[in-house]
Design a protein around this nucleic acid. Structure first.
Lengths: 212, 212, 212, 212
DNA sequence: TATGAATGAGGATTCATTCAT
DNA sequence: TATGAATGAATCCTCATTCAT
């Protein structure tokens, strides 16, 4: 088969995805290391050897999952790349949160497969940091910096303040991955919760007034 | 040696801790599964077989780390069990955050060793959920519920709102575990950041007014 | 302590026997290879290291058991070394059987510890063959040869015929070691059974008459 | 390959037998515990891991040998199930002995592999006793009981008398396993020897007359 | 392409033996 | 002498990867 044969390419892509789906499933359930190629082959309904026709090593399977996730991300970002409307920033933020959180939810299994390994593998960690996190912080810092409330601005670096938002999302994701039923059940309410909290504060007035 | 010999017991405890320290280090670096007993033994400066004098299996090493963490937690909680002063709740909250975050920092390697495995192992996940998370939420819900700002209260369940705080902390912890240098450098500023943000809001006034 | 100190020697001998007793017990229960020095030390009520003060290796423990058995044997043989009285050979034989079988019974655990290893270890097998079996056959052949019934003599070599007797005893011992309750219960009747059978035949007359 | 594929099944069976042959050989030479998987794999001409495609554990290899032996036994029994002819019982007995002893000889290595372990393992011992020995005794007792010579019948239980025959065979087997060259060389003469001995007695007339 | 039997390197665990106390 | 903690070689078993079909 020539690589240019479009039908063959599509077939190969389909098979690749079938295998990545299986790998995602199994990695999410057992973790990268505990998962065996046999497990994945069974889940995918193919023979062990077949996997090696599409991925050179087990580690490549993991990279394949990461790549697919990045692809998803890229497509999603394209949509949300609408300019942060000055006029109604609150609405913009809420919309962004909705999109992001539903994207997370759709790819929950993938994150479950990917995050633990990310935390355990120095190389992956570094790649993720420089290739994903830092670029997105570079975009966010100016966007957020100028809208930060003064008291905060005085106290902490914008760099740190920016981290608050992804860290809240990440935190909720982790709680959900840990199996917290409340977070799972109320996932759809999170965008509103986070928006309100960030724009209007968390604690009741009386509590706030106490400050110095 | 009789079990009751106090010197022998102390020696055994010291050796056990020496091995747990090594295991924490190695698990944090490579993850539970990728870590080998040889790695751990080398790190601890003992022979492979010695580890098995103190822990029945590799999995027991992990449980040993969890147990030690719980113990640390227990001691810490005792200190912070001070009543949530009505008078200055903001200060109480800030203090609590300072304590909690510095506890996390002190045990960073331990969390790095423990969390990925927690995310990958269904049994551990469930144990953590029912034994640690749920009880602490049960304590937090009434404490926090009555102080929640009205707009939030209307919109989301207290149960969900409560999750915001640990999820922010957890999120920052994860960012730090991923190696984000900003979070690492500014860890000490987090309590203040989080307090201000929750009590005074995150976005500047102009942005808030825009609501609805 | 000087080797010549008689009290010290006696103490050492007692300790040695205590350890050999334990080893016999454990080897009989689990077999030589499955038995651990820890098992034996526990059974003997001493520390692991102590065993090595009396026996250089685990294999030496086994040899120690064999030696003690040979010693027992030697003492027993001395007693039964009475000349095979021509006059009442039947009684002589019955007596010999009684002695031999009760000797076996007294040392049942020892045999249980020793025989399986004897069957599995080429070197031990050869030593046993040349040092124990062949010498005793050399004694038995002339004794038995001249008393063998003519039909047998014509048919088979005396060498082979001689083997019948130890093989019957050995067979019963094995059945007993296998746990056959009948053999265990009726062990005391065996000398009479074997004597009658060898002197008077096993099958009833009518069956015998059928011959050719 | 589907399990129903007859060619694949045959291949798998052949491989299984090849491995069992090797295991029999090695267990017979060194005993179950001293034998290593490497030894067996080498003897079989396969890699270590291959063995585990056909047997779950080393212990399963042993059970596989036992099963094959039972199968051999079953096939042999079918043949010899001819009714014990009243007319010429002596001939029947001699034939039976010939068959049994040649069966033992053919499977000598297997017995050498199996018996020591049988003697060392309580569970196997008990299984062998209740599943093999006791059933065959239940068959033999009535058959032999009515043909036992009167003097014996008076003296000992039929149950015990019956044990004489297998114990003789077993004894000879053990002597052969110990490497006795006479028993090995003259194995073919044993059926005749045992038949004559049981039907005509062992000792010469003059010796027998001496009784009481 | 697809298969799955075969491979063998690698890792957890055991245990005979040593040695400092 | 006696102890038992420490050692590390040896072994069972797993599983990523290869390759003949």
């Amino acid at each position: 088969m020539r690589k240019s044969d479009p039908i063959a390419v599509q077939l190969a892509d389909a098979r690749k995805n079938q295998i990545l789906d299986a790998a995602t499933q199994v990695f999410a359930d057992r973790g990268f290391h505990a998962a065996t190629i046999k497990d994945i082959a069974q889940q995918a309904g193919v023979a062990d050897g077949t996997i090696y026709l599409y991925f050179k090593t087990k580690a490549d399977l993991f990279v394949g999952i990461l790549d697919r996730l990045n692809e998803t991300e890229r497509r999603a970002v394209d949509l949300s790349a609408a300019v942060p409307t000055e006029a109604d920033f609150r609405e913009f933020f809420a919309t962004y949160m909705r999109k992001r959180l539903s994207l997370l939810e759709e790819n929950l299994r993938t994150f479950q497969a990917v995050i633990p390994e990310l935390l355990q593998n120095r190389e992956l960690r570094e790649r993720y940091l420089t290739e994903i996190l830092e670029p997105s912080f570079r975009i966010a810092v100016p966007l957020i910096g100028k809208r930060l409330q003064p008291a905060l601005k005085r106290k902490v670096s914008v760099e740190l303040a920016v981290r608050t938002i992804p860290s809240m999302v990440l935190g909720m994701l982790i709680l959900r991955m840990l199996g917290d039923p409340t977070v799972e059940k109320s996932w759809a309410e999170l965008p509103d919760l986070l928006t309100t909290m960030l724009f209007d504060g968390f604690w009741s007035q009386s509590q706030r007034g106490k400050k110095k």
